[in-house]
Amino acid sequence: MRANEIVQILNAEIVAGKEIADRLDIGTACGCDLMSDVIAFVKERVALLTGLTNPQVLRTADLMDIRLVIFVRGKKPSAEMIQMAQEQGIVLMKTRDSMFIACGKLYQAGIKGDSSY
């Protein structure tokens, strides 16, 4: 699924990486506030949904080749995070949806992912 479709589904706003969002192809998603688990379990072509807004989210994303981070519950990334994302080529979005609703909408739209770890 293209990142631009995700914008529509989650009624989200792109806050960094607008110019690369139309080329980004997402296969699965991970809804997680525990960066340790993201590092332990994430696979390929993943979108990360999180309510955490600290720079470690972007370090984790960079490390795990995650190219799309979606902040849920109306959380806003800081200016520092937006700059880091731009440098790293990571798309940032924010949505007012809760984690549960955002994950549910993406699942319903066809992003299925792995069922177990």
Partner: peptide, 12 residues
């Protein structure tokens, strides 16, 4: 609270 300390570090 920052998303760390899950006890996965050394195993990872």
């Amino acid at each position: 609270d920052m998303g760390f300390g899950a006890g996965m570090g050394l195993p990872n």
